[in-house]
């Protein structure tokens, strides 16, 4: 069973629909026990790191997501959901994320308009090109995914950066290690490329 963690953020139904477009049934849940029983766990999100991390803590959903990650089941984060995989973010310096991935989250350092909004080209890195879930999806070619964000992951281990975008500078936009993967962009708004990425996640057996 694929579970989409519902912690009061907005774009959840579109994630379920995009999975359905790839032939997969997913359930929205607010119940930590359902997250514990899930085969695949998806943490979406739009919003503020501080508020979301508090909600994950008070609902017990954060602990359940971390357990899933530690237990080796496939776990995917989308946008803010991915950012919550890190322990910290400059968006809310007092807040604690789930600390599933080493690294942190920072605001774009650029003279270009922020948020970074639009269909950005994503290139796989060398580790991304060897990644079981991603390699065939990209097949050696860049793909475009819809991004809307002011913050992005940084200070990751080199092997954890699986795909990058460029907005004045290169930034990690697909990250992960072992059974954990995260996308800074919105696959559920990225048409075929996004539906295929979610399909690959649903089929992934890390």
């Amino acid at each position: 069973m694929i579970v989409v963690v519902d912690y009061g953020v907005n774009n959840l139904k579109s994630v379920v629909r995009a999975l359905a477009a790839g032939g997969h049934t997913a359930a929205l849940t607010t119940d930590p026990d359902e997250v514990r029983r899930a085969d695949h766990v998806l943490l979406p999100g739009v919003g503020h790191f501080g508020q979301a991390s508090r909600t994950l803590e008070t609902t017990g959903l954060g602990a359940a997501v971390r357990e899933a990650a530690v237990s080796g089941r496939p776990v995917m984060g989308i946008c803010l959901g991915l950012q919550l995989f890190f322990a910290t973010s400059s968006e809310a310096t007092e807040a604690r994320g789930l600390a599933i991935l080493p690294g942190t989250v920072v605001h774009f350092d650029t003279g270009l308009p922020v948020p970074h909004v639009g269909w950005a080209q994503v290139d796989l890195t060398a580790p991304g090109g060897r990644h079981a879930m991603l390699a065939r999806l990209f097949d050696g070619m860049p793909r475009f995914f819809y991004h809307v964000h002011s913050y992005h992951p940084t200070a990751l281990r080199d092997d954890d950066v699986l795909g990058t975008g460029t907005y004045e500078r290169v930034f990690p936009t697909l990250v992960g290690r072992d059974n954990v993967i995260g996308a800074q962009f919105h696959p559920e708004k990225s048409q075929r490329a996004g539906i295929e990425l979610l399909d690959a996640f649903a089929r992934w057996r890390p």
């Binding site: 639009g118 269909w119 950005a120 080209q121 475009f144």
Partner: peptide, 8 residues
């Protein structure tokens, strides 16, 4: 790089 958008 951002793609130019075509918007019906």
């Amino acid at each position: 790089m951002l793609a130019r958008r075509i918007i019906p």
